[in-house]
Amino acid sequence: MRAVLVVNPKATTTSERSRDVLVRALRSEVDLSVRYTRRRGHAAMLAREAADEGVDLVVTLGGDGTVNEVVNGLMSARLPSVPTGVSPAERLPALATVPGGSTNVFARALGLPREWPEGASMILEGLRLGRHRTIGLGRADDRYFTFCAGFGLDAAVIHRVERARRRGRVSTPALYFRSTVAQYFLGSDRRRPAIALERPGDATEEQLATVVIQNTAPWTYVGDREVNPNPEASFDLGLDVFALRQLRVASTTRTVSQFFSHQPDPHGRQVLRLHDMTEFTLVANRPQALQLDGEYLGEREKVRFSSAPAALRVIC
């Protein structure tokens, strides 16, 4: 089996020594080539090149941003000609994700351990046993995402965190909490909901303040705790939507606390939840922040979301 390991050398929880250990372990199972990212977007190019070369497996060592780039690279590759009846997912290399970031939502949603040595061991076992699953992806306009997207407040928080990290701050739950509070009270126009959700064959949902889209559950983690606005979201179904109609302090605090309950079921007059959606469009009357898989992508006024079922094979 031919494989390419795409390494983000800035991954927060790995070192050069740990990378060497991983490379030796992988080379005991596959014919491995190692390629390092040098800039934002480079992982997508490396993954597309690997797929075009006909490798069987692409392994990532990095965080959710690296995974997102690799997935988009794979999905943009030229599919080889194969017999009728072979799915697109079977024509692409499989994906294996060794957790190397600070949160690693995608890997953990697949059932992999949080730390990279245990995650790597599970992947090696999966390779030996031929264990994999086929998952669906989400799509925002022409870009894919693996576990979540956000339009509005949560994306603006991620932008604030990214600016803090460029100033040397470390990504921690405390940094996200402070950034959320600052964005909520100082950076949001909470009195004028700007977003509408349009879906084929249904009435438009008007005056939404912020929207979270999930391709699986959980949405994210705070340490070891799952955060679940849409607990029924699944890689095997379409997209789930959670939206708040208002960002009032009392109702927002109450709803957010429901994310963390043992059996989360966020609800209330200000809550909109939609399950297993095939496609919909978010339209805003003023620019809103957009994030995919925890990566800030700038501001948009319109984004079309769709589900891409059974799109990718993953080793887990």
Rank of each mutant, 00 (worst) to 15 (best):
60 T>N: 09
61 L>F: 15
61 L>Y: 14
62 G>C: 09
64 D>Q: 09
65 G>H: 04
68 N>T: 06
68 N>V: 03
72 N>E: 09
72 N>V: 03
74 L>Q: 03
77 A>K: 02
78 R>H: 05
80 P>G: 03
84 T>W: 06
87 S>L: 11
88 P>A: 10
88 P>G: 06
88 P>D: 14
89 A>F: 12
90 E>I: 06
90 E>Y: 11
91 R>K: 15
91 R>I: 02
92 L>K: 11
94 A>I: 02
98 V>F: 03
100 G>S: 13
106 F>M: 03
107 A>P: 07
107 A>Y: 10
107 A>Q: 07
108 R>M: 11
110 L>N: 05
111 G>N: 13
112 L>G: 01
114 R>M: 07
116 W>V: 00
117 P>Q: 11
123 I>N: 08
123 I>D: 11
125 E>C: 06
126 G>A: 15
127 L>Q: 09
128 R>P: 12
128 R>C: 09
129 L>I: 03
135 I>P: 01
136 G>F: 12
138 G>Q: 04
142 D>E: 15
142 D>S: 13
143 R>C: 00
146 T>P: 06
148 C>W: 00
148 C>D: 07
149 A>L: 04
149 A>Q: 02
152 G>A: 08
155 A>H: 08
157 V>C: 10
158 I>C: 12
160 R>G: 03
166 R>G: 07
173 P>G: 12
173 P>T: 11
174 A>K: 11
174 A>N: 06
177 F>A: 15
185 F>A: 09
